[in-house]
Design a protein around this nucleic acid. Sequence first.
DNA 1: ACAAAAGTGTTAGTCCTACACCCATGT
DNA 2: ACATGGGTGTAGGACTAACACTTTTGT
Lengths: 228, 228
Amino acid sequence: MADRDHAQLRIAADLVILTVRDGKLQVLVITRRNFPFEGKRALPGGFVRVGEDIGAAAVRELSEETGLDGTALRLEQFAVHGEPDRDPRGRVVSVPYLAIMPDLPIPTAGSDASTAAWMPVEEVRAGLAFDHDLILDEAVERARRRLELTTIATAFCPAEFTIGDLRNVYEVVWGETLDPRNFSRKVTGTEGFVEPTGGRRMPVTGRPAALYRAGGATTLNPPILRQR
Amino acid sequence: MADRDHAQLRIAADLVILTVRDGKLQVLVITRRNFPFEGKRALPGGFVRVGEDIGAAAVRELSEETGLDGTALRLEQFAVHGEPDRDPRGRVVSVPYLAIMPDLPIPTAGSDASTAAWMPVEEVRAGLAFDHDLILDEAVERARRRLELTTIATAFCPAEFTIGDLRNVYEVVWGETLDPRNFSRKVTGTEGFVEPTGGRRMPVTGRPAALYRAGGATTLNPPILRQR
DNA sequence: ACAAAAGTGTTAGTCCTACACCCATGT
DNA sequence: ACATGGGTGTAGGACTAACACTTTTGT
């Protein structure tokens, strides 16, 4: 019935951390220092330890490889990849996590961390180690859907942001332009999406924009749907 | 860095197979014959073999335990559970799959299969082995969302069905009643959701209903949203 | 004739889109 | 004054919910 020869089976927790930076959707990647795919870019992540929870492993690996604090992020797990030959080291089942964060500098922490960097999703596409290109694509599609139905877009923004900042997130992630007037109304009219802080921000030129912080709601009703 | 003591780590593929039967949402469960939780109900599933794809293992276990052919089902993988102590036999990471099928009798195939049966979700709730109650809840919530955005409801129905049958699926899975008139228009007005077969079905009493088959579309645009 | 289920018409409301227009600032 | 981005008003269309009403059968 159950076979016992599982010596080589391991679980890896991998992370797709997305941000909007320089007007582009960017992903946090590291450069591998070891076999296999040495020198190639890959998603941050690593093996789950004995007795360690998978989500905890994701947070730990993120910290070790990039210096970021994963406990502050909403990590969302999505579909695993476990094809028997996806890793030349043996059977490795990858459990991927998606998180979204504002454009912060990567703390160039200790040993491993020096190679972590933001890279535009378009640039790394088809260039990552393992099946990480596929995992990245699935994460991006998931993030796009999440913008439709949840308030996660605020996670791309700093603590205080303008409606224009938020619209920029949607435009960059979806790759389409939105009407600023209608978007503004839709966001401010949705209970719990954003709350005015009372502050304002002066643009280089133009009328000052009101500042907002993320509201308490997590789901968006009605949803903000993409054009099809 | 990576530790090597993974002797006990195994992957299990578990299945949540849902149907609508006797006006209730039902799930396919087996009765366990072995340690642990012997005699308790559980979701069908079992350990992935060396060199075996996880999805293939799900199909194989479904066939072994229930006699059903999983290749005919759209299996959809959702969030894994890998807490270190979720299985008394050691570290087992469960990869759950959701599938939806019409109300068919369970083939009482060979040895293991005799215990497989449909059970109403409400009746098995809080009574399953391992953390299968939790996995079931997540699967049901996922199925509910799928009805909103995809044409998956037709998978609950036999090859030919009436609009009333389809409405009954929504009502049972969502646990709310829908207006038959508006539902009928919404479904027949959505390109690719259902196609008329030309046939009719006579109810016990009342006007005959036109028969339909599933159309080619998989996503539902516009979606059919639940009341909030 | 009646009950029951299927299906059509209609109306009022909500939401979305497009775009004209006004607002507030730096240069 | 003018360019620029922020924001409001508004009209037309699409979609929805609610429900009166008609159709088609078995008894």
